[in-house]
């Protein structure tokens, strides 16, 4: 008789906690019972992300950059585990490498965004005027089905580096690498609630993410055209942003980080 292994139960990551779906539902992926998140899980994740927003957005960009780098350190340390969950072999190794590159890129991007997207404005009058990027708020990230790790972490990191908090839907068909990545966020010092990772059925979860008034923007990188149309229609009820920046196979870019930022222009008179 063989001794059973101590297999890891797949969990959602909401408000800094590894949890089953509040609904108690699962769906099978291979031999694994994967949590099937519900509307209430989305709601709880958004609420936690909103609560985490002031703290995360007011960290210094340097600090946010270091935390994203730390997430990369955690990935490097657990490379073999991720290669295995990605199916092993060279393609899985390349996927981990590309994910590391993305994390390091956005770690170094956090404290450049004001200079890349902002400006001092030369106005025709005695005013000092500048424009700075600010987080849009809570960003929903809809990760592509495949690859299942790099685009997810790239888009989560891009949103986080500018000071947003994130609620991400991991790949529906290959959720395990994404769910495992929650452990990188948790041990990489991403603050409680600042990033949530949910598995479940797209068709069920997308409407809730798209209609939630406290989701300021949705990065629809992993959406089909039909899903995107539905998200855009729902976003119109609260003038939500549906981001189109970045493609699944694109190299990391500061433009992806800027896409989830608002611009604020500040004026002050010059005088004695």
């Amino acid at each position: 008789m063989t001794t059973p292994t101590v297999a890891k139960t797949a969990k959602l990551y909401i408000d800094g906690v590894f949890a089953r779906s509040e609904s108690g539902r699962v769906y099978p992926v291979g031999a694994v019972n994967v949590p099937r998140a519900s509307r209430k899980d989305v709601r709880d994740a958004v609420r936690a992300a909103r609560a985490a927003l002031p703290g995360w957005s007011q960290r210094t960009p340097y600090n946010r950059g270091q935390i994203l780098y730390r997430v990369g350190e955690m990935l490097e340390a657990r490379r073999s585990e991720f290669v295995a969950v990605l199916g092993g072999g060279r393609p899985a190794g390349r996927e981990v490498d590309a994910t590391l590159d993305a994390l390091v890129y956005y770690a170094g991007c956090a404290d450049k965004l004001a200079q890349l997207g902002g400006s001092v404005n030369q106005v025709a009058g005695p005013y000092f005027t500048f424009t700075i990027p600010e987080p849009v708020g809570v960003v929903g990230v809809v990760a592509p089905e495949r690859p299942s790790l790099r685009p997810l972490l790239e888009h989560v990191a891009a949103a986080l580096c500018g000071g947003n908090t994130v609620v991400a839907l991991v790949s529906e068909g290959a959720p395990l690498p994404g769910l495992l990545a929650a452990e990188l966020l948790a041990t990489g010092d991403v603050p409680t609630g600042a990033a949530a990772l949910l598995s479940g059925l797209r068709a069920e979860l997308l409407p809730h993410l798209g209609s939630h008034r406290d989701v300021d923007a949705v990065d629809a990188v992993g959406c089909s055209d039909e899903q995107r149309r539905d998200l855009e229609r729902r976003a119109a009820d609260h003038v939500g942003r549906v981001l189109s920046g970045g493609a699944t196979g694109a190299a990391p870019s500061h433009r992806l980080a800027l896409a989830s930022l608002e611009l604020k222009t500040v004026w002050h008179p010059i005088g004695v």
Binding site: S119, V123, D216, H238, V239, T265, V266, W267
Partner: peptide
């Protein structure tokens, strides 16, 4: 807010980006 006027108000200039947050 997309524009913050400090110790002034309703100033506009083509060099200064203008536009909104939220709704």
């Amino acid at each position: 807010a997309g524009v913050v006027w400090a110790n002034t108000f309703n100033r506009f200039d083509p060099a200064a980006p203008f536009g909104g947050f939220r709704e």
